[in-house]
Amino acid sequence: MASQPETFGDQPLRFSIPVRDARGRLVRLDAVLNEILAAHAYPPLIEKTLAEALVLTAMLGASLKDQGSQLTMQVHTEKGAIRLLVCDYKDGALRGYAQFDADTVAALPSDSTLFGIFGTGYLAITFDRVRPASEGGGRYQGIVPLEGSCLSEAAQNYFVQSEQIPTFIRTAVDHVDGRCVAGGILVQHLPEGEEGRERLHVRLDHPEWEHVGMLAFTVLPEELADPALPLEEIVWRLFHEEDEVRVEQAGILTKGCRCDPVHIRDVIAKFPAEDRAEMADESGDIVVDCEFCSRRFPVSLTSFNN
């Protein structure tokens, strides 16, 4: 029996180019992505959009190094084919789902743009860092309009507008041997304030950033979504002429729905008995739906009498 080809997925890679004041992350989602998608029978266009969002979330989440910190990305619209898209990352655990109007999606072409899928709306990215606020911790949320041809461009605009950090992002989604594979790269110019100097604002003509950005732009979508291509190889192809490039493997990604029957019951138990009675169905169960994993958790009213 022929052996299965080795794949390189579900483990983000961080890299930096010190002399160019640049940093970046690469992510390729494979088995984890298909676990998340398997919980829902998404139409191809929704599947592709959610896959791209999960790649973006994994790349942004890979920047969090403190245990317990969380990154959440949310897209909300009122009249789009996708009404709500939510993804989050916490300690290497990734999850996401999309709420959509099936009739509207069925009428869209497969190559629909961001506006075609969402209409007008906004992108919100929230960082919840567990370290003290005096050390850069706490909650920070940036919200920007949905602009660009795809979610990657919208996220790139987020960094330019909200974070004021020159950023390049590219993602790709493909199907390989019957499964969905998605990859992405994020490259940023380091704010000079991190080195104790005046903070660099949006200066896309900065000579070091212009050089790095031009190299990053040459990455091919098929490289990002090729499960047989190591992420380190992509870094080498892009930046092998640099004097020094540092790489660091981040932790393995997992499917991370955090719904738990015991926790759900404990939360419901905090409500007064009369409120619990109103929540229950005709069978005497309070049914809690998890949008992320598409599971239902029935909690019997009788369990609170024990």
Rank of each mutant, 00 (worst) to 15 (best):
Y122S: 15
P207N: 07
I143S: 03
Q11I: 01
R20D: 13
D103V: 12
A155M: 15
T7S: 05
K65I: 02
G61F: 04
C293R: 03
E210D: 13
T113V: 10
A81Y: 07
R203F: 11
N305K: 13
D111E: 15
L224D: 00
M214P: 01
H40D: 05
L54C: 08
L45V: 14
L94F: 09
P145R: 06
Q4K: 12
V287P: 13
L253G: 05
L231C: 02
C87R: 04
H206V: 00
H206G: 05
L224Q: 00
V235S: 05
V219S: 02
T302P: 00
L186P: 03
D91Y: 09
E278A: 15
V55G: 03
Y140K: 09
A182Q: 11
I286F: 06
P44S: 08
C257K: 05
A155N: 09
R295P: 00
T254K: 11
Q188N: 15
F168W: 05
C259I: 06
S16T: 00
L33D: 12
D266P: 07
L253W: 06
Q156W: 03
S152K: 10
G184R: 13
E192H: 13
A273T: 15
R131K: 15
R265E: 14
P261A: 06
F297Q: 04
T7I: 11
P298D: 02
D205Y: 06
V287A: 00
L229V: 02
K65P: 03
G256T: 09
P230I: 03
D266I: 03
T7F: 01
H189S: 07
E147Q: 14
P261F: 10
F217T: 03
Q156N: 04
K65N: 06
L60T: 07
I169A: 00
M279V: 14
D226V: 01
V176E: 11
L84T: 10
P207Y: 11
V86L: 13
A172F: 04
Q161S: 09
L37G: 14
R199G: 11
A62K: 01
E244P: 02
N306Y: 10
D30R: 09
S283N: 13
L50W: 04
A53Q: 10
L45Q: 09
P18Y: 12
V19P: 05
V32F: 08
T167M: 04
Q11D: 01
D128H: 10
C259F: 09
V235Q: 03
G148I: 12
S294T: 01
C290Q: 10
D177I: 00
R139P: 02
I234R: 01
C87V: 08
V55S: 05
H206K: 01
R246A: 00
P5S: 04
S149E: 13
C180D: 08
L123F: 11
L190M: 13
S63L: 05
K79V: 09
G196R: 06
L229C: 06
G136F: 12
V247W: 00
S63Y: 03
H240V: 02
N34H: 13
D91C: 05
G96Q: 11
F217L: 03
Q11G: 01
E210Q: 12
L229P: 02
F297A: 00
V267L: 15
H263V: 15
G196F: 05
E291H: 05
M214L: 12
H201V: 11
I117W: 09
L56Q: 06
V187R: 04
H201S: 10
T104V: 11
R258Y: 03
